[in-house]
């Protein structure tokens, strides 16, 4: 993967200028039939405005919702990251779809279910053994 840096410059009618930079990953062309590469773009570091641009500031952001994103404005501090995930993020749960054969109906797409009736079961404890009985049988504690 190679990082592609994209620089954006905006100029309003009064000549005020702002710049912003965003980075994306670029890989080699895909071979037909091969799976898509993972898509995780890194946040890019802040970079100064080009010389000569009045008050230019750039701000960077991570990539919320799978997109590259950045915000910048002139004449003020660069904006903070636009989105961030905090701790205790629940794990993603993925249920894979599979092709199942339904007699008489051909192929249909459905979700795999697991039959638990034949699954191993833990031993069941039905009675606790009293320790006093064990000691008496071995002749101890008289």
């Amino acid at each position: 993967m190679t990082i592609l840096q994209i620089d954006v410059t905006g100029t309003d009618a009064d000549g005020n200028v702002a710049t912003a930079t965003v980075e994306v990953e670029v890989g080699a062309p895909l071979v037909p039939g091969s799976p898509s590469p993972p898509v995780a773009a890194p946040a890019s570091p802040a970079s100064p405005a080009p010389p000569g641009l009045p008050g230019g500031q750039t701000g960077q952001a991570p990539h919320p919702h799978g997109e590259g994103a950045a915000r910048a404005s002139s004449g003020e501090e660069g904006m903070p990251a636009e989105a961030r995930a905090e701790a205790a993020e629940p794990e993603a749960r993925v249920m894979a779809a599979q092709q199942v054969q339904i007699p008489g109906l051909g192929n249909a797409t459905g979700h795999k279910t697991t039959d638990l009736t034949n699954a191993p079961r833990p031993p069941v404890v039905t009675q606790a053994v009293r320790s006093t009985t064990l000691f008496r049988s071995t002749g101890g504690f008289r």
């Binding site: 993967m1 994209i6 954006v8 200028v17 702002a18 912003a20 994306v24 898509v39």
Partner: peptide, 24 residues
């Protein structure tokens, strides 16, 4: 905020391959 030009930039994907079209 004080008067300033403000830009928000978003790409359509976070990762591309050579030859892909990128939309900014």
């Amino acid at each position: 905020a004080p008067a300033a030009v403000t830009l928000n930039v978003a790409t359509d994907k976070p990762a591309y391959n050579v030859g892909d079209t990128i939309t900014v």
